[in-house]
Design a protein around this nucleic acid. Sequence first.
DNA 1: GGAATATGGTTGCATGTGCAACTATATCTT
DNA 2: AAGATATAGTTGCACATGCAACCATATTCC
Lengths: 151, 151
Amino acid sequence: MGKSLESTKGSVWALFLTAHAVLVDAIERRLAQADLPALTWYDLLWALERAPGQRLRMSELAQKVVLSRSNLTRLVDRLAEAGLVSRERSEDDRRGAYAVLTEAGREMRRRMWPVYEAGIRQLFEGRLSEAEAETLGAALRRLLAAAREIS
Amino acid sequence: MGKSLESTKGSVWALFLTAHAVLVDAIERRLAQADLPALTWYDLLWALERAPGQRLRMSELAQKVVLSRSNLTRLVDRLAEAGLVSRERSEDDRRGAYAVLTEAGREMRRRMWPVYEAGIRQLFEGRLSEAEAETLGAALRRLLAAAREIS
DNA sequence: GGAATATGGTTGCATGTGCAACTATATCTT
DNA sequence: AAGATATAGTTGCACATGCAACCATATTCC
């Protein structure tokens, strides 16, 4: 049991990375084939849609979608270019800006969802037992919390 | 509609994505702080190190590290530039090329490992019980196999 | 109140990535 | 054996990302 480097746990990390890469890849391919934008776009649109007033400050949004601030700026640029979000300067803090979901943005997310969902179902959810899903969820939640605390 | 993302399983996928992003981010930061190359480099070096003769055909390597062929070409370019791998044309199939690990490459991987390992331990392994790790490993293995079969 | 500092967001630049077109060699078909 | 087709790898180009420097506004501290 005490084998440290090649233990069960060690290879789990490698599996985690590989599985992520392969799954995301497969799902992105489906979206692309359906002439839909990439996952990051969905993620951002969905984050906004859930937010009160369907708007978020740039830095909150960056946190939610796990992107650097500069990165987010450009992502929002592209989405704005495509008419899916708009920018609004903040009233109270005049340095700040909001990204706001547009009707076209809502619509796009709605169009993307079925394809995305089918992918998730077929490649991920459908392969996990209820129990596994539960364990996995709990573990991931803990990992996430810990990582956020530390870094 | 988007509701499924709020079911147990659905949100597990979201967690999976977020946890991956945050963890990789944290580990990359550690490597960068230690003036070491990024994870992809490690991955490639390690793949080569395990391979017989410490060499792999470009396309095999691409598969192992889950990168598109073109992408791999450039990654190998950069590693070769840094002297960590070298290219060799294949004798039998003259279209083919091998990426071969150099001594400097082995050495670099050896230097990276402690930092990488510490990250994995602190952020991932250390947070999982033996049982969770086992469940997680089994699930990921299954997901990976399925995804590869399908796409 | 005004200099010093911190924060929100954007931008320049260098690097990384994806896709489709391309070159060279191998395989298949007849 | 010639021509069609497939495969290995690379390259051109457009787009995405990360980092550090930057501008503008807020906040702190004297």
